[in-house]
Write a protein that binds this DNA or RNA. Structure first.
Lengths: 217, 217, 217, 217
DNA sequence: TATGAATGAGAGTTCATTCAT
DNA sequence: AATGAATGAACTCTCATTCAT
């Protein structure tokens, strides 16, 4: 057996949580989709809630790690760093798109866990994004404006394709997992960054930013 | 009794669905919060599902009606019409912010109902938004660019404050229901419209668009 | 309105009890089939149980009355009287075949009511049937044999077509309500009476008994 | 534990269905009579309906098997074979008298399941009984007469003691499960067969038919 | 006489979890 | 590590009935 039973449970859970939500998915659903005994969920994860929390934190930890990795890089411009960060987060979510979707939906719930996760993970995300924008403004790269809405706007753009993929695919036949989606979407984002965020004179001259080869436009 | 029991049920349901999600809310929760007998939910709405569907369609119908109302108005510019439309939709959601939040979350589920609602309601929303943008481009008001992402971007901005209000309030102390939130948020959106959507020369000259007094900037 | 609402309820109840049994039929079923408000059942009959008991006793009272009417007639022979009695009971059940079916099924339940009805009604039926058979034996018309089984056998034959009409129609395409069924069935019963009950020498001579014209063989 | 919990459920269900009917019995009744958790009924039988169907089909399958066993035997006369068949069916029902009573009552309902069971099981019963009677007529053992009513009559006699045992015990103090009941009842049936079914000349000579010792008269 | 709203009780089923094996 | 049996709690919904109108 290639995949351990524990992994099979995770895979099944992710897929079901993503489609039906946490409360809409039963342990039996998961077990039967994973071809595994029901009791195993409790055995391996200490129950449905444990499995759920593991999925949430794993995703968010990876998410944070991506941010940290990008923030630690040295870039010529804040603009390029921001675009690289956004790109990496899109790729991370694309790789784990089922979990991503699940996490984004569950994060709209009003529970103790969600509040905790926000404090633990999203606060860091907020902090790092704000730091980046603030630096850009200080350096004169970005236009001065209310920082809150800018950060929120950026975050919304990052998350949207994996929060409403169903909407995109149903109404626009856009599959957020297909190879070139991120490239196309990045073009849109880059435009936003250059027009809305950066100071205007620079906008026509600087057209490229450094990226790993694989995601070059 | 001022509020009929049927209305009390709706109010309770909206509040609970919004916080815990549809599957996370039990009929008994609703009934007890509404100070009403459990059986009354089935009596008035034909069950939990019926109540849920009524809430969803009611909200979406009202949403569409707002769009229709705005599209039928005559404006000097597409820009002003777009901004007025966005503003009205924000106000509509603000008035029904509990339902709005519930609907936006449930719309990320993968169910037959959601698919139907998308076809019935969101397809119209998409159609009208696209029409508006396309007209603006034809008239030379808006810059030519991929229409898909533009529409999606606009929709995302409209919806975001009521899809993730919890995030905003928890991390930014932004209450999306407070009186001036819409004004502040509109300023941000207007900036986006002028910078990203409109052709640049005009951007510094036209600064106002017609709105009812109450929402003047 | 030709039929009063009370009668409409009775009709609907009879049809439903007959098909689904008492416990399998809800007051709402009855009311909706009768196009009548649910509360009317309680109003007119003091509840589902009251309606049920009224149907049961009405049928059984009529049943007893038929027996009494036949027993009081004067016949030349016990054989003819027995056959006339059987015939009348078949006709009575045929006229009220829905109630008949319902009563016969419900009579196989084990409840206080059933026990009471047995004591009140079926005991009389038993008494009269036994009397008739006993007289026939005393007069030398009927062969002497265990009276218990004979009476039970006769009763079973009387009841069978309305206790298992569904069986007959499903497997034999015999409709127990069609005009000539009773005639055909009586021929069978008469054969049984003549062969099994009567002394043999007489069997070929006496061939007819007095009946209303319509059911003449 | 001698009896498994599954068996305990079956026993309790049979007893309750028999007394109160299927619709009159609740799963909780069954579980509490069986000293078992309510959920176990759904676990083992997939719900009340599943349990019910299992009981029905199990009984009817056994019933058919008895018929098949008798039909396959070789007898000197059709009369003896018929009597042996009837005897075996009485014994089978006597052994499972609770289920028998339940099945016979439920078979008078008008449901999809009943229609299916009739097609599946009772059609075979009808076929075999008809075959036996027809052979008897061809061989000259049985008097020629309408075969339908004969078969129905026989079936009615076979079933009656277990369809209306309550009637018998209440009004006649006849317990259909007591050891000698079948013997006494068989005497009555044999009389019917000899008088009504067989040709008359033979009736006084042939008085016995081969049976296993245990049921010799 | 008739009704729609409302109710408490109980229906059958599913839930996540535990336990002995 | 893995399982099938078993459980108590909770689920949604329907039940027959009552009540004010």
């Amino acid at each position: 057996m290639k995949e351990t039973k524990k992994e099979k449970i995770i895979d099944a859970a992710v897929r079901l949580f993503q489609t039906q939500g946490y409360d809409g998915t039963s342990v039996r659903d998961i077990a039967s989709k994973a071809n595994v005994n029901v009791a195993l969920v409790s055995y391996h994860f200490g129950g449905k809630k444990g499995l759920y929390e593991e999925l949430m934190t794993q995703f968010l930890e990876g998410y944070l790690k991506v941010i940290k990795g990008e923030v630690d890089k040295t870039f010529g411009s804040c603009r390029d760093q921001l675009l690289s960060l956004i790109h990496s987060l899109l790729e991370y979510q694309s790789t784990n798109h089922f979990v991503a979707r699940m996490v984004h939906r569950e994060m709209t719930m009003d529970s103790v866990l969600v509040r905790e996760l926000m404090s633990t993970y999203l606060r860091k995300e907020k902090h790092d994004l704000e730091g980046l924008i603030r630096t850009g403004m200080r350096r004169g790269e970005f236009r001065k404006q209310a920082i809150d809405f800018v950060v929120i706007h950026i975050r919304t753009m990052i998350i949207m394709p994996y929060q409403s993929p169903h909407y995109l695919s149903e109404l626009y036949q856009i599959t957020t997992t297909e190879p070139y989606f991120i490239d196309r979407y990045m073009k849109h984002i880059r435009q936003w960054v250059d027009l809305c965020l950066c100071k205007h004179m620079e906008l026509s001259t600087s057209t490229s930013y450094l990226l790993p080869r694989s995601i070059s436009q």
